[in-house]
Simulated scan of single mutants.
Amino acid sequence: MSDDEQWGTGLGLGRAVVLVALMLVGCSSRLLPATGSVTQGIALRLYVTTPMLPLGNHLTQAYQRVNPSVIFETVGGNFTTSRERLASDPTSYMLTNHLPDERLWAAPLGQDGIAVIVNANMPITALTMHDLREVYRGRVADWSELGGRAAAITVVTRESGSGTRAEFERLVMGNREVTPAAQIASSSAVMVEIVARTPGAVGYVSMSYLDSSVRALVIDGIMPSLENVANNTYPLRSIIYIAGYHEPELHYRNFIYWAQTLEGQMVVARRYAPLINLQP
């Protein structure tokens, strides 16, 4: 298998290929940089899903510090919106934690953890996957049924088209439907805001959006931490991809190559789980 096939692949080969790639961290398994000359003032566009906005901003800012001739335009939106924008602009790339489309070339940059969050004043600290599923099905109406104090449960989910919602439903719900009584959060930031101000609320969000206004729950006895995402023990995790219609060339290729190097992976590790072990 060639270098490019291991770290950048058409998804038609299956997610298993990418999962293998996550464990191949030697220099020979990284996307090779382009060898052409670099034009001054080159503009690159990235469509970035909302859970990936912190990563998109950190990666592009760090890359510009070492390559000041490159100018990035990052355009945020949910998965469906970003996918539609990419379809109308097929020379650009998108950054996402959800990618079911087998027509796209894609390379992994790390892993994202999906944290289940409750109001900071709610004494519940842990749920099983079964209990979480029952809550989101609407079959558990009060926190007292799960060992908490009496308080009505307010289920909050993301809007249709959200990649985080798609990953949550894949990992937690399977073929089961989320209760139609659930409130809808239009973005990751809005999800945190709703849960923070609503007693009894429960939601889910990329770990990169966690702050002190909400509490992240232990799931099946595993803490929601970047370490546990990286070692594949935390159950709610997804692969972070950069994807496009074509294998990247020159400027995009150099950026993706850099994001898979130690320097780029240290940027990923600020809020996400990197591809490689950064411990000495």
Rank of each mutant, 00 (worst) to 15 (best):
L127I: 07
Q279D: 08
R165N: 05
Y209P: 05
A106S: 15
R271C: 03
D4T: 14
N78F: 10
E145M: 13
P100R: 00
V156W: 07
D131M: 04
C27Y: 08
L146K: 09
Q265V: 09
P180Q: 04
P51L: 06
V20Y: 04
N231T: 07
I239H: 01
N57C: 01
G161C: 05
R45W: 01
I219M: 12
T91L: 12
M52Q: 14
I242Y: 05
V178F: 02
F72H: 05
L32Q: 14
I114C: 04
N175H: 12
R149H: 10
V70F: 10
R149Q: 08
Q61Y: 06
W258V: 04
Y204G: 10
L127A: 05
L236R: 11
I114V: 14
S28P: 01
L46K: 05
L11E: 01
T91A: 13
E177T: 15
L109I: 15
Y241V: 04
V118N: 03
A181S: 15
A189H: 04
G244T: 07
N78K: 02
G147W: 12
R270T: 12
R165P: 00
P100G: 03
E159I: 14
L99R: 11
L146W: 09
H251P: 00
S225E: 05
E177G: 00
L99Q: 13
G161H: 09
E84L: 15
V66T: 15
V48S: 03
S144V: 12
S188G: 11
R30Q: 13
P68C: 12
A151K: 13
N228H: 15
L210S: 06
S88W: 00
A107K: 00
H130T: 14
S2N: 15
L226S: 02
R170I: 03
W105E: 13
Y209C: 01
V17M: 11
L55I: 11
S37K: 09
A21C: 08
E247P: 00
L46W: 13
T233C: 03
